[in-house]
Design a protein around this nucleic acid. Structure first.
Length: 587
RNA sequence: GCCCCCGUAGCUCAGCGGAUAGAGCAGGCGCCUUCUAAGCGCUUGGCCGUAGGUUCGAGUCCUACCGGGGGCGCCA
């Protein structure tokens, strides 16, 4: 364990001791320590405590102040207002803390691992086979990727699952069509781009759909195919596999554009649970969790009713004997709990599926697959809206292709990079343009809370000023520029120096990185990290403006400020990495 | 009808029961012989949807209502 005790913890500890010394009967009281704009920290806990102990808050606060150990960490503590404590820490404590973070041999800035890490399965980035990816897929992918990284960084054992839509009745239609037109997915050359793969699939899908809707005999043959597929008929499976493989070429190209790692072994689609469906239904029916109703196998809930007031069930098995997606999701839970030994199941899924997951989770609880120790949670995200506040569509009313959106963002960012860059090659412009453009798209998504609807405004996110990813990338690039120009001078913490206001504010904020990461991971809330990083960049930019680094007054101050630059850069880099966003060395 | 989410500056959004509610964009005024102006400083702009309640203290918790979005038997 190489974690560094944060300044907050150090101050908290000293205040808690003082509190218990002043009020022994409330020894475990929380001082409620917060950052403050009136001091480095403020403690709010005394007010509630005074009420409880029937004491005068200000008098109690004064007593607590007398017991606070000052000097090493706390520089001063004073009573303020009705009974708050305002606390200032020493410049030395700030710099020593940062020095310890910089010296972390694991390079993780002294961020502690979770005390009791568990195993979390994160279900995210779930595209559908033979279908184009659109903006809805973007949110699940971007949010899920960041949550995975956050959890892994805290030491959680994370198992990624991409629950792709690779099963269901529409495959009967596709497979039958391919069987009758066997060369539709043939490749012109060995190397096929994702774009070509999707184009092939799209063309085939449309043709198959047209035939399905117009030709009754084809429709019948297609339905028979579904039966063959579920029965595992080898020829049918081989054709099905062609669709999956072709789609994967496309998926990988999109995720590559998103600068996101997707591993083959993490792709376990709906088909992966096919063998478990019958067993899942049997277990539910035998335990009485599910009952037959109108021919279907159903689970009922007291608080789920339809418009007519009648209870609406979760249908596990349809009246025709087929399995719906509830059966698949319930089987996936069994797999993740009993085979993967997960204790937390996280679903990064559209909020519109909340009722479905609520019912699925409740069913799993009744079946005993989930309980107080093994829990499931839907990280629900809102709908992507256009500038008009309606679901994001093109002017013609069609859903927007994800790749088009990403290309547009990259193109606009590249234009700015080219305009600003003095001596970059075309290759470098393309690379930076992608890093800036994709970063902008991701940051826009990750900087607001996931659960609300999300207004997609490319102009705003690629405007490249204000609260966007570029602001953070720019701050990072400026730091790197200084470090490159430092020459002989090396970054070195100088705890004996007095700090300016800008230096103190920056230092205190860098210290808060660990706590922010813990919170963002625990709450599956990347936007808290994004907010922290924006603030960090703001504080750095302010420092940059007020404090000359290379032209500081003394060599010691140059070293100290270089050190502040360096630790800020490392924090920015690490934080951005947890959001899945690159930090170019130059911009 | 029932359930879920949202309602904070003109717009897009933060805001863990704590002091004077914050950012960005947009608007106004300034700042590049000095480490990257994709930047910085100052400034205009708020009955935190409404009404009650809990609390020493409510944008935050509870209840009701209003407005917007979503969901609600065999699609996923």
């Amino acid at each position: 364990m190489t974690s560094v005790t944060s300044l907050t913890s150090a101050v908290h500890q000293r205040l808690a001791s003082a509190l218990s010394a002043a009020l022994p009967e409330n020894a475990d009281a929380d001082p409620l320590l917060r950052r403050s704009d009136r001091a480095d920290f403020q403690a709010n806990g005394i007010l509630a405590l005074a009420k409880k102990a029937k004491a005068n808050p200000r008098e109690l606060a004064t007593q607590v102040v007398e017991h606070v150990v000052t000097g090493d960490v706390i520089r001063s503590v004073e009573v303020s207002g009705p009974g708050f404590l305002n606390i200032m820490v020493t410049d030395r404590a700030i710099m020593e803390n940062l020095a310890a973070r910089a010296a972390d041999p694991e390079g993780r800035l002294g961020v502690p691992y979770a005390e009791r890490p568990g195993t979390t399965v994160v279900d995210y980035a779930q595209p559908n086979v033979a279908k184009e990816m659109h903006v809805g897929h973007l949110r699940s992918a971007v949010i899920g990727d960041s949550v995975v990284k956050l959890l892994e960084f805290t030491g959680e054992n994370v198992i990624r699952r991409h629950h792709i839509g690779d099963w269901g009745t529409q495959f009967g239609m596709l497979i039958q069509y391919l069987d009758e037109h066997p060369h539709e997915l043939d490749h012109q050359s060995a190397e096929v781009t994702g774009e070509e793969a999707m184009s092939n699939l799209g063309r085939l899908y449309k043709a198959a759909r047209k035939l399905f809707d117009s030709d009754e005999e084809f429709k019948t043959r297609a339905r028979r195919r579904v039966v063959d597929l579920q029965a595992g008929d080898p020829h049918t499976m081989a054709l099905w596999q062609k669709f999956v493989d072709e789609s994967k070429i496309y998926f990988y190209s999109v995720f590559d554009k998103l600068d996101m790692e997707i591993r083959d072994e993490d792709i376990v689609g709906e088909s992966g649970y096919n063998d478990m469906l019958a067993e899942t239904c049997r277990l539910l029916e035998e335990s009485g969790v599910a009952v037959r109703s109108e021919g279907a196998l159903c689970v009922f809930f007291d608080d789920v009713k339809g418009p007519d007031g009648k209870p609406v069930p979760l249908i596990v098995q349809k009246s025709d004997g087929g399995y719906g997606y509830a059966a698949t999701d319930l089987s996936a839970i069994r797999d993740r709990v009993f085979n993967l030994k997960a204790d937390t199941l996280l679903y990064v899924v559209d909020a519109r599926q909340s009722l479905h997951f609520k019912m699925v989770f409740e069913t799993a609880r009744r079946a005993g697959w989930l309980n107080d120790d093994v829990t499931a949670y839907q990280l629900a995200f809102g709908t992507v809206l256009g500038e008009d506040g309606k679901p994001f569509k093109t002017r013609e009313g069609e859903t927007v292709r994800l790749v088009d959106l990403l290309d547009e963002a990259i193109e606009r960012a590249s234009a700015v990079v080219r305009e600003k860059a003095q001596d970059l090659s075309e290759e470098e412009i393309a690379e930076r343009g992608a890093q800036v453009g994709i970063g902008a798209v991701k940051y826009a998504d990750l900087s607001t809370s996931a659960n609300r609807d999300y207004k997609f405004d490319l102009d705003q996110m690629v405007s490249l000023n204000g609260d966007t990813s570029v602001y953070l990338q720019y701050a990072y690039a400026r730091i790197q520029s200084i470090l490159r120009k430092a020459g002989e001078a090396r970054p070195a913490a100088r705890p004996d120096l007095d700090l300016t206001e800008a230096e103190r504010a920056l230092g205190l904020h860098v210290d808060a990185f660990a706590e922010t990461v813990r919170e963002a991971a625990a709450e599956y809330a990347p936007h808290k990290l994004a907010g922290y990083l924006y603030q960090l960049a703001t504080l750095y930019t302010s420092f940059y403006d007020k404090c000359p680094v290379l032209k500081a007054e003394t060599p010691e101050q140059v070293e100290n400020r270089l050190f502040l630059c360096d630790i800020t850069a490392r924090t920015l880099h690490q934080g951005m990495a947890l959001l899945g966003i690159r930090t170019p060395e130059r911009l």
